[in-house]
């Protein structure tokens, strides 16, 4: 019973995390050059919603792995590598948002506008692994 509650909370946290990761590059690319106070507010939103969702998803995922005794499964090891990569992408986005909010006229680099594609690719691989519990 507790396992199912953990699973539901994990899925919720992942949805919020991914929503932020997928939308942040698109929203910022669409906004263009906005005043600095808006930049700071956007960064604060990311840190108040998306970053806690990432921490929640990671902690709940580890709890699920321990509770369900999944850590002996090789697909979970592969998933963990992808999650680490996803955490890195989140870090890069977060850092770029920090830089963008610090400097009034700082433009976003070209890779930022396409960061959602990396997130999407990692997410697709993770979903295949979790649903099939195998690559093939």
């Amino acid at each position: 019973m507790i396992y199912l509650w953990l699973k539901a909370a994990h899925i919720l946290a992942v949805i919020i995390w991914m929503a932020g990761m997928l939308s942040a590059p698109l929203v910022l690319a669409a906004l263009g050059n906005v005043p600095q106070d808006q930049r700071i507010r956007l960064r604060a939103l990311f840190h108040k919603i998306v970053s806690p969702a990432m921490i929640g998803a990671l902690c709940l995922g580890i709890a699920l792995g321990v509770w369900g005794d999944w850590f002996s499964q090789w697909w979970l090891m592969l998933k963990l590598l992808l999650v680490i990569a996803m955490t890195g992408v989140h870090g890069a986005l977060s850092g770029r948002l920090r830089r963008w909010s610090e400097t009034a006229a700082h433009p976003l680099p070209p890779w930022f506008a396409r960061a959602h594609l990396i997130t999407l690719a990692l997410l697709a691989l993770i979903i295949v692994l979790v649903v099939r519990k195998s690559v093939f």
Binding site: L58, I84, T87, G88, V89, H90, G91, A92, L93, S94, G95, R96, L97, R98, R99
Partner: peptide
């Protein structure tokens, strides 16, 4: 290790 990798990526993203 995870926090370190996150922080490295964050610093790269921030152009540091």
């Amino acid at each position: 290790f995870l926090i370190y990798l996150y922080t490295v990526a964050e610093s790269w993203g921030a152009a540091e």
